[in-house]
Amino acid sequence: MKKNSFTFEVVLAFSFLIVSCFLALRFGSVFDADSSIIYQLRLPRVLLAVAVGMGLSVAGACLQALFSNPLCEPYTLGISSGAALGAVIGTTLGGFWIVSGLTISAFIGALAFTLVLYFVSIRPGNSTLTLLLSGVMMGFFGSGLVALWMSLADSNGIQAAVFWLLGDLSRARMGGAWVTLFSSCILSGALWLRSRQFDALLMGEEDAISLGVDVSVLRRRVIIVVSLLVSLCVSASGMIGFLGLLVPHLVRRRVGALHGKMLPLCAVWGATLLVIADMLARVSVRPFELPVGVVTALVGAPVFMWILLKRGSQV
């Protein structure tokens, strides 16, 4: 398959991002928004959507490479379940856990789960598959705890938690959005610096080792960085599904599987798609607002299927 030139792809992606940001600032829950609404309410949301869309897509792409598994997504390792647990406990106990729109308890929960994963990853002799399966198991365990907490907690707090679990950018504040955007850029950049090693992993773990890649060290470091990235995104916006799975596949079809080119484009396309999805969430059912996770799943899944069936062949 002939690939377009990388420069063209970058220009295309950035133009889409700019146009979608402009549209997202222009359209919302009301028609005639003045500058204070755009600046105080819409801009933080757009910035947060950029940050989270970028983070989730890059995290998804890296995990797919690390585990050589096209089904991996940011939530595969169960870190998000730790975040969900923290968020559900935090939101039902009261609003004090949310600082500038970032759910601190979710971040703590995610870090706790990351720590367990890290210990699994440094144990000598544990294969990548062990790590992957441990992550999946932790995910189930975390979801179990979330369900347990939710069936015991008071109904009032649960409503907040349910919206959180569906993925939601409406909590965005300026401060929190900038922090998320800044950290998301740095962590994504850190992952991008490992592009060559990810490329080596594409040939299989043993070939990568023979090419001089210390797979266990790489695994450990990537787990830490990706976990931080996912914790950050999830604590800012809840569980926005599908994006981290979809975007890497779309981008791979456009520029191929080499990570040096693919990761930056994942970042830009992920940001673009989430900005658009959030805009749809705001304008589609006024005066109600859809959780953005609903939009990404409802629009993303059919689009993904269509692309798969149209192009056929390899994923």
């Binding site: 309410l41 609003g95 009032n156 109600f288």
Partner: peptide, 25 residues
Amino acid sequence: RLNIERIASLKPDLIFATTDGNLPD
């Protein structure tokens, strides 16, 4: 699940909320 943007667009000079139902955040 209040729509904050719609509230802001009204430029209210007084908003009433309740502890029994509205989300603290």
